[in-house]
């Protein structure tokens, strides 16, 4: 009898010990993962930090041999002012803003209405149109760049100006797909009752469906805004005249002609400048950014 009790007690002590060990192990595990992620986050930030440090150094500053700068030895905003003095950059900034806003707005409206029509109006040929459009998602832009360039050059009005980078891609197939999928979540009864109340098609689109689509609209704006601000290949093909260059293209003007430190400092400031709008957008809309990946990726 007494032996049995002993065994019971023993195993209980043993058990407590094991749980305590496991608790310690779990904490160590969590701490390891946490510190790994922090280090990784630092490495992700590190190149950007280098750019920042370089961009704050004065142009007369000569860096010491074989030293890594984690912090600028002097802070000046002269480089940022000088970037704007480089011929073409203010104009390019304006071009980029116009391009991004115009493209996002136009393609949003088209994709939204297109998605609504494919999702909510029952008409003959609907599926054929949808699958035809969807299948062009598979075609990479590289295949289309030559014929589209030639077409733009033949039309003349779209060639070599900002219309050439806004309009050809205005029908955004990915956006149409996104909106069409989202239309499934809007009940048909709602639209039917609106119709009974005498609402026309446009009223239904803009008064009822548009507000209900807000989450997907924010997602679409974020994705498209980032993509068109960063767009590089197509503008480079279409825009021959430097007056129409976007900011990404204008960065080429900052590469060294005389090969000195001065170019490097200004260039870093330029790179910060072209990344900043997107980063600011990300910081303010972080929640939606992460959501947007969820929506666009998993549907």
């Amino acid at each position: 009898m007494s032996q049995q009790v002993n065994i019971l007690q023993l195993s209980e002590v043993d058990f407590n010990k094991r749980t305590r060990n496991r608790k310690i192990l779990r904490t160590v595990f969590a701490l390891t993962i946490f510190s790994f992620l922090i280090i990784l986050a630092f490495f992700q930030f590190f190149p950007f930090l280098l750019e920042l440090v370089t961009s704050f150094h004065g142009q007369g500053y000569i860096r010491e041999y074989g030293i890594l700068y984690f912090w600028p030895r002097q802070i000046t905003f002269q480089n940022y002012i000088d970037v704007f003095r480089v011929a073409g950059i203010p104009r390019a900034f304006l071009n980029s803003v116009i391009h991004t806003f115009a493209f996002t707005t136009i393609s949003l409206i088209i994709a939204f209405i297109f998605g609504y029509v494919l999702g909510k109006i029952k008409f003959r040929g609907r599926n054929i149109i949808f699958f035809a459009i969807l299948s062009t998602l598979m075609v990479p832009g590289e295949v289309l760049m030559v014929p589209n360039f030639i077409l733009l050059r033949q039309t003349v009005i779209f060639y070599d100006n900002i219309l050439g980078i806004i309009l050809p891609g205005a029908v955004n197939v990915f956006g149409i797909f996104l909106f069409k999928q989202f239309m499934n979540t809007i009940p048909n009864e709602l639209l039917e009752s609106a119709e009974i109340d005498g609402a026309g098609e446009l009223t239904k689109i803009f008064r009822i469906v548009f507000p209900m689509c807000m989450p997907i609209i924010v997602t679409y704006i974020i994705i498209t805004f980032t993509a068109s601000w960063n767009e590089y290949l197509w503008p480079m093909i279409v825009l021959r005249n430097p007056d129409w260059h976007t900011l990404q293209l204008a960065m080429n003007d900052l590469y060294p002609r005389f090969g000195g430190h001065v170019d490097e400092y200004i260039r870093s400031a330029g790179m910060i400048l072209i990344s900043l709008p997107i980063i600011l957008l990300f910081v303010t809309l972080q929640k939606y950014f992460l959501q947007s990946v969820n929506v666009s990726g998993m549907k």
Partner: peptide, 9 residues
């Protein structure tokens, strides 16, 4: 955020 940086940068 690094995935938002443009190819140029």
């Amino acid at each position: 955020w690094p995935s938002l940086i443009s190819a140029v940068a």
